[in-house]
């Protein structure tokens, strides 16, 4: 048993190392001068520079991309919350004949290949004159955020003990105030996880943004990928810095999302 356990622990440690090391290395490279990156033997000791980071933060294209990403994703998530949460509550608490079909419909939106949505939308937005604008991107992303928030919020609302809501009804609360004052606050933690997840999803989205923007509405992932199209002419340190900038916002939600995972599985247990 002993050597087996040791090997198992070593494999786990290696996996843990592999999970974060590539990212740490990227962050280190973002602090390096080009001479310290283009080396046959990787360099751990180097004199750090902030030139890459300040270059990235000083570029108009990056700042525009950041602004577009924040506005497009933020608005789409707000729309997703406003429309998805109430709908999820209605499905979870007011069972009807169509509940199964509605669930399947919401999930099936995830099967749609992104290209199949992006090509016709591009033609449509071109005809309407909204191609390469943020509103077009926000409307398109809303499809993603509404369906994902709805899908994840349904179990969250179902997990709210029915007795609390029944007690509120007895106290004379109406259906809407039960939703606002009871269900929303009680389920708040799981709902925060669902909302954070939908934000990460659209923040990371690439294909649709690539097809629906040409210059004005480019989001940060597109700007970052374009930096690399210039090949080796762009110093690697700058590319690494842009990768780090792009990756930071989703990582901010690490705590919320792992708490969300825990709460999902704790519910299953009871």
């Amino acid at each position: 048993m002993r050597p087996g356990r040791l090997i198992a622990k070593a494999i786990l440690a290696l996996a843990g190392f592999l999970a974060v090391f590539p990212l740490v290395w990227t962050a280190l490279n973002a602090l390096k001068n080009n001479v310290d990156i283009i080396t046959r033997v990787p360099r751990l000791v180097f004199s750090p520079t902030f030139a890459n980071i300040s270059y990235i933060l000083g570029r108009d294209s990056v700042l525009t991309g950041l602004y577009n990403s924040v506005i497009a994703c933020g608005s789409a998530v707000l729309i997703g919350v406003a429309l998805g949460l109430p709908a999820a509550y209605a499905v979870a608490r007011y069972p009807n004949r169509f509940a199964g079909d509605i669930q399947f419909f919401v999930l099936s939106l995830r099967f749609l290949p992104p290209v199949a949505v992006a090509i016709p939308l591009m033609v449509i937005w071109l005809q309407v004159g909204l191609y390469d604008t943020l509103p077009a991107l926000i409307v398109t992303y809303s499809l993603l955020t509404i369906s994902v928030i709805m899908w994840l919020a349904m179990p969250a609302f179902q997990a709210v003990p029915k007795e609390i809501e029944e007690a509120a009804f007895v106290d004379g609360y109406g259906a809407y105030s039960v939703f606002w004052r009871i269900a929303l606050p009680v389920a708040a933690r799981s709902l925060a996880g669902a909302i954070a997840f939908s934000f990460v999803l659209v923040w990371n989205e690439f294909l649709i943004a690539l097809m629906l923007s040409s210059s004005n509405a480019k989001t940060l992932p597109i700007v970052a990928s374009e930096l690399s199209q210039q090949g080796m002419n762009v110093p690697w340190g700058i590319l690494n810095a842009s990768v780090v900038l792009l990756s930071l916002p989703p990582l901010l939600f690490l705590g919320v999302l792992s708490g969300f995972l825990n709460s999902v599985f704790r519910q299953k247990k009871t």
Binding site: A19, N204, W236, S247
Partner: peptide, 26 residues
């Protein structure tokens, strides 16, 4: 916590991270 980090990264970031890592010389 460690194992959740990679999936949170934008696919574009993950792709870059590994594109650099797989570079034949550096």
């Amino acid at each position: 916590l460690l194992f959740i980090i990679p999936v949170l990264l934008p696919r574009v970031s993950a792709a870059f991270v590994w594109k650099f890592a797989y570079h034949p010389l550096y």
